[in-house]
Nucleic acid binder design. Structure first.
Lengths: 262, 262
DNA sequence: AGGCATTACGCTGGACGTAAAAATT
DNA sequence: AATTTTTACGTCCAGCGTAATGCCT
């Protein structure tokens, strides 16, 4: 029966050219390598070397065998990797969400219900969530609309946040149409909110600032409007004396649905 | 490092369901198998089994690992087979000839020049010889026409053999056109002669008899014409008092060329 | 009670290293 | 003289089997 360790030494010999160097490489004695190569010939049932009195080299069959040896070793490594990856995947709950708020909410619950499990989460577009659910490359998907087998999870409503001196501050409520054209501060990684706003407000420009602290600083220092939701409002979000104006469009009042696989 | 023998036991466990049965299958003790499976988990770096106090079964990762194990074992076997095949091929001179006579002649020489080498020979069509040479799946090809790098090997001329009382027996020489329509006795495995005759004599029927003794018996007992060549004539071929008439077409006077690779 | 997995433990064969031989550079 | 392969030989440990334990059916 073939031995992978011997095959490894064999491949090393093809690279290094002498048994001594292989012995050095593997921290073994030369006789040990000699025996390994003899065993290998035994296992293949075929001569792999042409031997002089104090020199050994691959014959034609040996050269061909090196190729198969390398392939086998590579596939053995691959197999180990794949099994490990599979195992990790088993211990991991992969979540893909269209928005941050319901993801955070879900993560809290998961930490409670599945303690010790690894959790891998991503915020992405609706379509990606659906694809991922379809190909079972995630365990849980969060979408802003119901799908087969999903349950209602939470609601979130979008607001415009402006300083009191802003011209929009007088309004009691707004529509996307009314704010279309104004430039907004935006934190990226907002999933579907982001794309939805860009669709509903094609005339607006969005200044993206990923870093949270920098974003907060901009909110404080500038008079640019930004978005906020009641979910975030209830939390630690500082408003720097800004005014919160609800958006009346139905698209701004979202219900999130959670779909769990098996 | 993965051990193929342990993987084999692992695959067997997937089939048999208990370590005891695996132990029986491999003529080993149960503790030995237990240790092998523990080593395997160590090698993969991952738990492969769910264990009760006196029962063990594959977990999800284990089930996945079985697939990779089987694949690896199969590829290891394949590798051994391929290397052996390659080795055999190295020790073998593969000859493909379009006709028997030059093949026999060449084999005599090869037994002389390459004693101890295995020789694998086939009689086939011209096209097959050329394809085989092209893809280097043979070492020597014999063709009835010259090709790049080939050398002239021998000549062979085709004759018609008929009993003295046959109507053709009066002729001193013949053409394919004149014998077209007569039915002929034929030994198959004649390579290009066979197809050439069928092309030149589309109106004739050919009674094929592979077995040499049966063929000779037919030649003796019937008055059907058959083919013969000067090469065979010079040898042991009995003619049973038949008359040999040369065919004058250029296609009946063949020069064979030998092409040797590397 | 019989079957199964695992641990404990003693033994042995195989694998390794050292030493030495023989040959090549 | 240095390097390389291979054989000989002694040592030691990994891997095996036996026995025993605990558990389940």
């Amino acid at each position: 029966m073939l031995d992978l360790y011997e095959l490894k030494q064999f491949a090393a010999f093809a690279d290094l050219g002498t048994l001594s160097k292989v012995a050095g490489e593997f921290h073994l004695s030369t006789p040990s390598i000699t025996r390994s190569m003899q065993n290998l010939e035994e296992s293949f049932g075929v001569k792999l070397f042409s031997r002089g009195k104090n020199r050994i080299e691959l014959n034609e069959t040996g050269k061909a065998a090196v190729g198969y040896a390398r392939k086998l070793l590579q596939e053995a490594d691959r197999a180990v990797e794949q099994v490990r990856a599979f195992d990790l995947r088993q211990k991991t709950i992969v979540v893909r969400s269209c928005a941050p708020a319901p993801l955070w909410e879900l993560l809290k619950k998961l930490n409670h219900t599945d303690p010790g499990k690894m959790i891998s989460s991503t915020i992405c577009q609706n379509e990606e969530v659906q694809v991922s659910l379809g190909e079972k490359s995630c365990d849980i998907g969060i979408l802003p609309f119901p799908v087969e087998g999903a349950y209602e999870f939470m609601k979130e409503n979008l607001f415009v946040s402006v300083p009191p001196e802003h011209e929009l501050a007088r309004q009691k409520e707004l529509t996307f149409e009314e704010i279309n054209g104004f430039n907004f501060l935006l934190r990226t990684e907002l999933g579907f909110w982001d794309t939805m706003c860009r669709e509903k407000m094609p005339a607006s420009k969005f200044l993206v600032q990923t870093d949270t602290e920098a974003f907060n600083e901009l909110v404080r220092a500038s008079s640019l409007p930004c978005f906020i939701t009641d979910y975030i409002q209830e939390k630690e979000m500082e408003d720097y004396g800004r005014i919160r104006i609800p958006i009346t469009d139905p698209e701004a009042k979202v219900t999130f649905y959670v779909k769990e696989l098996s």
